[in-house]
């Protein structure tokens, strides 16, 4: 009895915390009249009209959504791949200046966004790289590297060097040792780095806004500059779009809850919740 009361309290806390998000999701199923109704309607006849409108009347939404998907997927794949190689070198060979470089990498991530992007903006403007998918992907990849290197180095340090040595002694090539022997053992680290950078780039708006443009615009950029305000904000549209857009990250933390802690702390704290 006490036990179920305790669980009920926990559920209540979780639901209260989630309430604002639930309010967004509910609003997506309301008509324009219902969404602006006073007093707010908790009970209403749900409609899918908003979702239909989103895909039919607004061609730019589909493009922006596709941009979000492409930019985050491609850049994070590149970042995790090259970060794994670097983390392997840092962990196994400890070249001179490892600590310093790890520090520099991290301090990029600790800098406020506008300070990071300001010189990049000038560089991109000078070379005519603005509003270009490749240029944006490269920047996002660079920005995802520090995080990934930190997470992966932590995991690689936890894999005994004996594996590498055994592999080498038995005549395995470096390629074999790195990708066949060591890589499978740091899979959790790869997943954590992948998911967290993916969520970051997915949610990112400033960099896209500053060095991107009409062609590379993602959804957060569109939201931030108020593309969808036809004289006052179009709330049904925003609620619907937001609902679709926040669903993937929420599903990701459900599916990958084990990796939440690793990801959120640059791999400096490990363990499960």
């Amino acid at each position: 009895m006490r036990r179920s009361l305790y669980h009920a309290v926990l559920w209540l806390v979780a639901l209260i915390w989630f309430a604002p998000v639930a309010w967004i999701i509910l609003s997506a199923f309301k008509t324009r009249e219902d969404i602006l109704a006073t007093p707010p309607k908790l009970l209403f006849t749900p409609t899918l009209q908003n979702f239909r409108d989103l895909f039919t009347t607004n061609a730019s939404f589909v493009v922006q959504f596709a941009n979000s998907v492409v930019l985050s997927l491609v850049s994070v794949v590149i970042a995790v791949a090259i970060s794994f190689l670097a983390a392997y070198a840092f962990s196994r060979f400890k070249p001179k200046g490892t600590d310093f470089l790890m520090f520099l990498l991290l301090s990029v991530r600790m800098l406020p966004g506008p300070a990071v992007i300001l010189p990049i903006y000038l560089m991109y403007a000078a070379f005519g790289w603005k509003d270009n998918h490749v240029a944006l992907v490269l920047f996002y990849a660079m920005f995802s590297v520090p995080f990934s290197v930190w997470i992966l180095k932590g995991f690689l340090d936890g894999v005994s060097i004996r594996y590498d040595e055994t592999g080498r002694v038995n005549g395995g090539s470096w390629f074999h040792v790195i990708f066949r022997v060591v890589l499978p053992q740091v899979k959790p680290g790869l997943i954590a780095a992948f998911i967290f950078n993916l969520i970051f780039v997915w949610n990112e708006f400033l960099f896209n806004f500053v060095i991107g443009g009409v062609q590379t615009q993602n959804i957060p950029y569109a939201l931030a500059v108020g593309t969808y305000s036809d004289g006052g904000l179009n709330w049904t549209f925003i609620a619907t779009m937001t609902t679709i857009y926040i669903l993937p990250p929420i599903l990701a933390i459900y599916a990958f809850q084990k990796y939440l802690l690793v990801g959120m702390t640059f791999g400096t704290v490990r363990g499960e919740v």
Binding site: P20, W202, L223, T242, P249, L260
Partner: peptide, 23 residues
Amino acid sequence: ALTLLFAPMVLTPVATGTFFRFI
């Protein structure tokens, strides 16, 4: 329950901000 509780930190901040203007 934990997913619901942890959801706010993975939301798109711009979307969250926009919607809180509504709230």
